[in-house]
Simulated scan of single mutants.
Amino acid sequence: MGRKERSTLVRLWLRQILETVTLVLLMLLLIRVTLQNFHIDGHSMEPTLHDQEYILVNKAAYLLQGPARGDIIVFQYPRDPQENYIKRIIATPGDRISIIKNTVSVDGTVLHESYVNKDDPYNPYPAIKQRVVGPDQYFVMGDNRGNSSDSRAWGMVPRRNIIGKAVVVYWPFDVDNLGLLPNESGVFAHVR
């Protein structure tokens, strides 16, 4: 093999390395922009999510469509944007929500919430009657209703505070948690 051929081979080899490194960096950037991990700290989302679990949040989930009822979201706490919370969306902009004891209704439709912690049905907050969710706002609640600081206590979550949609639990895998979070949109199927 001559000197010219070796030089060509080295250039091809360097080009392949550069292309591979560039592709890996682009993939890492794309992952960083669209996904974020989140650590569950507390019991407010029991039995769906458990204390000390780690989840992935899809930050690009709402680029083409808005957040929907039933979605579990991670957001900046409205009273302290340095803190991130995780809750389930119960009502979206324009909805009327009522909560009397343990009964939740959206636009007059009573919700039959299969994801709520049946072991702690206590509602420590006063009744809410026909509260209208404002534009670009969301009413959120924890699945563990007796142990959740949520919209019942501090109000709506502005759209700009939403970081993304929780999609998968990646640590630890457990008997009642196989990774993907269940789709609970059926609970809201009869709401207008």
Rank of each mutant, 00 (worst) to 15 (best):
I55C: 10
N177A: 14
G142D: 04
T48L: 06
S105L: 12
P182A: 04
A189M: 13
E5R: 08
V21D: 07
L35P: 01
H43G: 03
D51K: 03
I163Y: 01
N102E: 09
I89F: 06
G108F: 03
Y122N: 14
V132F: 08
V104E: 06
L26C: 05
R11P: 09
H43K: 05
P182S: 10
T34S: 07
Q76Y: 10
F38N: 08
V24N: 01
N58V: 06
F139W: 09
R96C: 08
R88P: 11
N84E: 15
D107F: 09
L63N: 07
L63G: 02
L49R: 00
D174T: 13
P81T: 11
Y54W: 13
I17E: 05
P47M: 00
K118D: 00
R6K: 15
P124T: 08
I17V: 14
Q82N: 13
A153C: 05
R96N: 15
I162M: 09
A61Y: 02
I89Q: 09
K59Y: 08
L49F: 02
S185R: 08
L9W: 03
R32S: 12
V191M: 05
Q130R: 04
P124I: 04
L23K: 15
Q76H: 14
I97G: 12
R145W: 02
V106E: 05
R15L: 11
L29S: 01
W154S: 00
P158Y: 00
L49C: 09
Y85Q: 06
Y62V: 01
Q82Y: 12
M156E: 13
L23P: 04
L49H: 03
D41H: 13
R145G: 11
L18I: 15
D150M: 03
Y170S: 08
L14M: 13
D107K: 10
P126H: 03
R11W: 12
H112E: 14
F188G: 07
D120H: 11
N177R: 12
H43F: 06
V132T: 14
V110P: 14
P78A: 13
G146P: 04
N177L: 02
L178H: 14
V21H: 09
G142W: 05
Y122W: 13
M1F: 11
V57T: 06
L181K: 07
